[in-house]
Design a protein around this nucleic acid. Structure first.
Lengths: 134, 134
DNA sequence: CATTTTCTTTACGTAAAGGTCAACAAAAAA
DNA sequence: TTTTTTGTTGACCTTTACGTAAAGAAAATG
């Protein structure tokens, strides 16, 4: 195994392992236009440089925050993430994050009310059980 | 339109309309064994009696509480809902409801932590925006 | 150079809960 | 009785985010 300086572009398998995802995932992100075309070696093998990797990590981060791939696509439509100007996209990103915060709040509210319903239902069923045994 | 006493069995379209679901849904529940076979008229038309309707309402209620059809199937495997002895299934149901309450609690906790992450990320992005404009 | 590992594309499969046709039969209404 | 409405089954469609397999080419290793 050759020592690899961080400057050299990396191939898909190594990158995937490094990020804990599969090669399929990376190719898929390219497929749906989230990752843009990466450089290829002579034989067609994909290679990823620092910026590509940053971008992929960015995507994974957003995913972690619950933003769907589709939403990221919309984000990319408005502001070209290709250009490495991550600074340019921040306003739109803030907007999306805000939207997500309220979505999450809403979900929490729904779940809380759901919890109450379940507990209520539980009480009613317990009553049935009790009355039945008398 | 004939006046319909509640004693008469009802056909699928009417029942669906009454419950605000589609006929496909009712047939689907039968398909996956949640509804059991209903009585048919001479020509094959399904008819539903009071107990069938109660059962369907019960299923919809559980669904409303966030219990998946698969979980209902498991419920039905252990205790035959067919037999109308809803009393018999209550202990298991209580168990499932309790399980769900903790699942919901867990989801709420996850969402809360997710919310924090998003807000943190938002702050970091705002910082980038601000520093950039100076 | 030979072998092994990794890469390529293409394309079908998966889960959940039904939606949506098609082609045809039965029930209800006129 | 003749329409019109509603019902029947069967099978393919939808969404999301990849998994998986096949067949073959390129890259890395010995």
């Amino acid at each position: 195994m050759t020592e690899q300086r961080n400057e050299h572009p990396v191939q898909i398998g190594k990158l995937a392992k490094q990020l804990g995802i599969t090669t399929r995932t990376i190719r898929y992100y390219e497929e749906i236009g989230l990752m843009g075309q990466s450089e290829r070696l002579g034989g067609g093998t994909r290679t990823y440089n620092k910026d590509d990797i940053l971008r992929l990590k960015f995507i994974l981060k957003l995913k972690e925050l619950g933003i769907s791939l589709k939403e990221m696509q919309e984000l990319a439509e408005n502001y070209d993430i290709n250009q490495q100007d991550f600074h340019t996209i921040t306003p739109k990103l803030i907007e999306i994050l805000d939207l997500h915060i309220s979505k999450v709040d809403e979900k929490i509210a729904n779940l809380s009310s759901l919890r109450n319903d379940i507990v209520d239902y539980r009480v009613r069923i317990m009553d049935i059980l009790t009355n039945q045994q008398e």
